[in-house]
Design a protein around this nucleic acid. Sequence first.
DNA 1: ATTTTATGTAAAGTTTTATTTACACAAATA
DNA 2: TATTTGTGTAAATAAAACTTTACATAAAAT
Lengths: 63, 63
Amino acid sequence: MKNKIKVLRAEHNMTQAELAIKVQVSRQTINAIEKGKFDPSLPLAFKISRLFKLPIESIFFDR
Amino acid sequence: MKNKIKVLRAEHNMTQAELAIKVQVSRQTINAIEKGKFDPSLPLAFKISRLFKLPIESIFFDR
DNA sequence: ATTTTATGTAAAGTTTTATTTACACAAATA
DNA sequence: TATTTGTGTAAATAAAACTTTACATAAAAT
């Protein structure tokens, strides 16, 4: 599953570490998700979605 | 995290077993998610969302 | 030129999600 | 009444998400 987190971070001038703190995970977790190493849990996807004020479907792509 | 899967199943006249087959998980996984024992993975949430043709946010509720 | 900041990555370990097998029970049906 | 169907649940296990610690590197700032 791909995602637009890196772009959204750039648009919001936010580092991986800053985003990690805001959604309460480790920086490595954000990095891994951005790099496609694994998918976020549903609750984490919701947190990211709310932070950027965008629907989950417009941030994460299943296909 | 709560969800409306049981209601959506009812509306679509679908058993837990049928839904399980359609989204390719075990019946017990569907039951556990309906009963709130755990949250689905993001890919599974997407599958359910596509099946019922509804946004993830209208099926799953973080708060 | 040196230090700081941001990112990438790796290994070991914990927690959460999902599977498999199995059984109990109620309601519908034969 | 006996059987089938749908649901709830449990224990053992596997797989995936996430943490922690740690190190490497490139770019930006001092």
